[in-house]
Protein backbone atom coordinates (compact mmCIF):
# COMPACT_ATOMS: atom_id res chain seq x y z
CA UNK A 1 0.00 0.00 0.00
CA UNK A 2 2.76 2.42 0.98
CA UNK A 3 4.61 1.67 -2.23
CA UNK A 4 1.51 2.42 -4.32
CA UNK A 5 0.84 5.62 -2.37
CA UNK A 6 4.43 6.78 -2.89
CA UNK A 7 4.27 5.94 -6.59
CA UNK A 8 1.06 7.99 -6.83
CA UNK A 9 2.62 10.94 -5.01
CA UNK A 10 5.62 10.84 -7.30
CA UNK A 11 3.48 10.73 -10.45
CA UNK A 12 1.08 13.47 -9.33
CA UNK A 13 3.84 15.82 -8.20
CA UNK A 14 5.84 15.12 -11.35
CA UNK A 15 2.82 15.90 -13.53
CA UNK A 16 2.04 19.02 -11.48
CA UNK A 17 5.62 20.31 -11.86
CA UNK A 18 5.64 19.72 -15.62
CA UNK A 19 2.28 21.51 -15.95
CA UNK A 20 3.39 24.35 -13.64
CA UNK A 21 6.63 25.20 -15.43
CA UNK A 22 5.09 24.77 -18.88
CA UNK A 23 2.15 27.02 -18.06
CA UNK A 24 4.41 29.59 -16.44
CA UNK A 25 6.67 29.62 -19.50
CA UNK A 26 3.79 30.03 -21.96
CA UNK A 27 1.54 32.37 -19.96
CA UNK A 28 1.81 36.15 -20.48
CA UNK A 29 1.36 36.41 -16.70
CA UNK A 30 4.24 34.02 -16.01
CA UNK A 31 6.96 35.03 -13.59
CA UNK A 32 10.73 34.57 -13.59
CA UNK A 33 12.19 31.55 -11.78
CA UNK A 34 13.82 33.92 -9.31
CA UNK A 35 12.51 37.30 -8.22
CA UNK A 36 13.96 40.24 -6.37
CA UNK A 37 12.81 39.84 -2.77
CA UNK A 38 15.56 41.70 -0.95
CA UNK A 39 14.16 45.07 0.23
CA UNK A 40 17.63 46.59 0.58
CA UNK A 41 18.12 46.07 -3.16
CA UNK A 42 15.01 48.05 -4.09
CA UNK A 43 11.39 47.38 -5.00
CA UNK A 44 10.57 43.71 -4.50
CA UNK A 45 9.15 41.92 -7.52
CA UNK A 46 8.64 38.51 -9.02
CA UNK A 47 9.55 39.89 -12.47
CA UNK A 48 6.31 38.85 -14.10
CA UNK A 49 5.57 39.17 -17.80
CA UNK A 50 3.42 42.21 -17.06
CA UNK A 51 5.87 43.77 -14.61
CA UNK A 52 7.30 47.22 -15.30
CA UNK A 53 9.93 47.23 -12.55
CA UNK A 54 13.19 48.69 -13.83
CA UNK A 55 15.91 48.60 -11.18
CA UNK A 56 18.11 51.10 -13.04
CA UNK A 57 15.72 54.01 -12.43
CA UNK A 58 15.44 53.42 -8.69
CA UNK A 59 16.98 55.73 -6.10
CA UNK A 60 17.57 53.68 -2.97
CA UNK A 61 19.52 56.14 -0.82
CA UNK A 62 17.24 57.97 1.59
CA UNK A 63 19.91 60.68 1.98
CA UNK A 64 19.80 61.30 -1.75
CA UNK A 65 16.02 61.56 -1.60
CA UNK A 66 16.29 64.01 1.27
CA UNK A 67 18.66 66.10 -0.82
CA UNK A 68 16.28 66.03 -3.80
CA UNK A 69 13.37 67.12 -1.62
CA UNK A 70 15.35 69.83 0.16
CA UNK A 71 16.83 71.35 -2.98
CA UNK A 72 13.68 70.71 -5.06
CA UNK A 73 15.82 68.97 -7.67
CA UNK A 74 12.90 66.95 -9.02
CA UNK A 75 9.13 67.23 -9.25
CA UNK A 76 7.84 64.64 -6.84
CA UNK A 77 4.79 62.57 -7.73
CA UNK A 78 2.88 60.57 -5.11
CA UNK A 79 0.95 57.82 -6.89
CA UNK A 80 -0.86 56.40 -3.83
CA UNK A 81 -4.64 56.89 -3.51
CA UNK A 82 -5.62 60.51 -2.82
CA UNK A 83 -7.03 59.80 0.65
CA UNK A 84 -3.74 58.18 1.71
CA UNK A 85 -1.80 61.11 0.24
CA UNK A 86 -3.91 63.54 2.25
CA UNK A 87 -2.95 61.78 5.46
CA UNK A 88 0.71 62.52 4.85
CA UNK A 89 3.19 62.78 2.01
CA UNK A 90 6.68 63.98 1.10
CA UNK A 91 7.05 67.79 1.14
CA UNK A 92 5.76 69.41 -2.06
CA UNK A 93 4.80 66.08 -3.59
CA UNK A 94 1.95 66.24 -6.11
CA UNK A 95 -0.83 63.69 -5.96
CA UNK A 96 -1.32 61.65 -9.13
CA UNK A 97 -2.92 58.37 -7.99
CA UNK A 98 -2.10 55.49 -10.30
CA UNK A 99 -5.69 54.28 -10.23
CA UNK A 100 -6.87 57.65 -11.58
CA UNK A 101 -4.17 57.81 -14.24
CA UNK A 102 -6.53 57.89 -17.21
CA UNK A 103 -8.54 60.74 -15.70
CA UNK A 104 -5.53 62.83 -14.71
CA UNK A 105 -3.21 62.23 -17.64
CA UNK A 106 -4.25 65.36 -19.55
CA UNK A 107 -3.73 67.51 -16.46
CA UNK A 108 -0.33 65.89 -15.95
CA UNK A 109 0.78 66.63 -19.51
CA UNK A 110 -0.47 70.22 -19.25
CA UNK A 111 1.20 70.94 -15.91
CA UNK A 112 4.49 69.09 -16.18
CA UNK A 113 7.01 69.64 -18.94
CA UNK A 114 8.35 66.50 -20.63
CA UNK A 115 11.95 67.47 -19.92
CA UNK A 116 11.30 67.89 -16.20
CA UNK A 117 13.19 65.75 -13.73
CA UNK A 118 10.60 63.59 -11.97
CA UNK A 119 10.62 61.39 -8.89
CA UNK A 120 7.79 58.91 -8.38
CA UNK A 121 7.00 57.04 -5.19
CA UNK A 122 4.29 54.83 -3.70
CA UNK A 123 3.95 53.26 -0.27
CA UNK A 124 7.00 51.02 0.15
CA UNK A 125 9.43 48.59 -1.47
CA UNK A 126 6.50 46.19 -1.52
CA UNK A 127 4.54 48.17 -4.11
CA UNK A 128 5.25 48.41 -7.82
CA UNK A 129 2.79 51.24 -8.54
CA UNK A 130 5.63 53.76 -8.76
CA UNK A 131 7.28 51.68 -11.48
CA UNK A 132 4.00 51.23 -13.34
CA UNK A 133 3.47 54.99 -13.22
CA UNK A 134 7.07 55.66 -14.30
CA UNK A 135 6.65 53.32 -17.27
CA UNK A 136 3.50 55.18 -18.33
CA UNK A 137 5.34 58.49 -18.04
CA UNK A 138 8.05 57.13 -20.30
CA UNK A 139 5.41 56.12 -22.79
CA UNK A 140 4.26 59.73 -22.69
CA UNK A 141 7.85 60.68 -23.62
CA UNK A 142 8.91 61.97 -20.25
CA UNK A 143 12.65 61.53 -20.37
CA UNK A 144 13.94 61.86 -16.82
CA UNK A 145 11.92 59.69 -14.45
CA UNK A 146 13.26 58.12 -11.27
CA UNK A 147 11.58 55.99 -8.62
CA UNK A 148 12.09 56.33 -4.88
CA UNK A 149 12.17 52.62 -4.05
CA UNK A 150 11.65 52.87 -0.29
CA UNK A 151 8.50 54.95 -0.77
CA UNK A 152 6.57 56.81 1.88
CA UNK A 153 7.15 54.13 4.52
CA UNK A 154 10.92 54.58 4.44
CA UNK A 155 10.59 58.37 4.49
CA UNK A 156 8.28 58.12 7.48
CA UNK A 157 10.50 55.57 9.24
CA UNK A 158 13.54 57.84 9.28
CA UNK A 159 11.39 60.66 10.66
CA UNK A 160 11.78 63.26 7.93
CA UNK A 161 9.25 66.06 7.46
CA UNK A 162 5.80 64.96 6.36
CA UNK A 163 3.21 67.28 4.86
CA UNK A 164 -0.47 66.71 5.51
CA UNK A 165 -3.47 68.04 3.66
CA UNK A 166 -6.19 69.14 6.02
CA UNK A 167 -9.76 68.05 5.35
Amino acid sequence: MIQKDLKGIFLLVFFALIAAFSYNYLSPFGIALFGQWEPSKGVVTSYSGTDSVEASIEIKSIEMIKQIVKKKERIILDVRPREIYNQGHLPDALSFPLKDFDDSVSQLIRSIDRQSALLVYCSSVGCTDSHTFAARLKNLRYTDVKVFSGGFRQWQKVGYEIQKNEK
Partner: peptide, 25 residues
Protein backbone atom coordinates in the same frame (compact mmCIF):
# COMPACT_ATOMS: atom_id res chain seq x y z
CA UNK B 1 4.81 28.69 -9.77
CA UNK B 2 4.53 25.13 -8.43
CA UNK B 3 2.29 25.07 -5.32
CA UNK B 4 -0.93 26.06 -7.15
CA UNK B 5 -0.45 23.28 -9.71
CA UNK B 6 0.22 20.72 -6.98
CA UNK B 7 -3.08 21.84 -5.41
CA UNK B 8 -4.87 21.64 -8.76
CA UNK B 9 -3.54 18.22 -9.72
CA UNK B 10 -4.17 16.78 -6.24
CA UNK B 11 -7.73 18.17 -6.27
CA UNK B 12 -8.57 16.74 -9.70
CA UNK B 13 -6.87 13.45 -8.96
CA UNK B 14 -8.93 13.03 -5.79
CA UNK B 15 -12.24 13.80 -7.50
CA UNK B 16 -11.46 11.59 -10.50
CA UNK B 17 -10.29 8.76 -8.25
CA UNK B 18 -6.77 8.58 -9.67
CA UNK B 19 -4.43 7.71 -6.81
CA UNK B 20 -6.91 9.18 -4.30
CA UNK B 21 -4.84 8.21 -1.26
CA UNK B 22 -1.74 9.80 -2.78
CA UNK B 23 -3.76 12.93 -3.54
CA UNK B 24 -4.97 13.12 0.05
CA UNK B 25 -1.43 12.56 1.33
Amino acid sequence: ITVPFVELVAGFSLILGLFPRSAVL
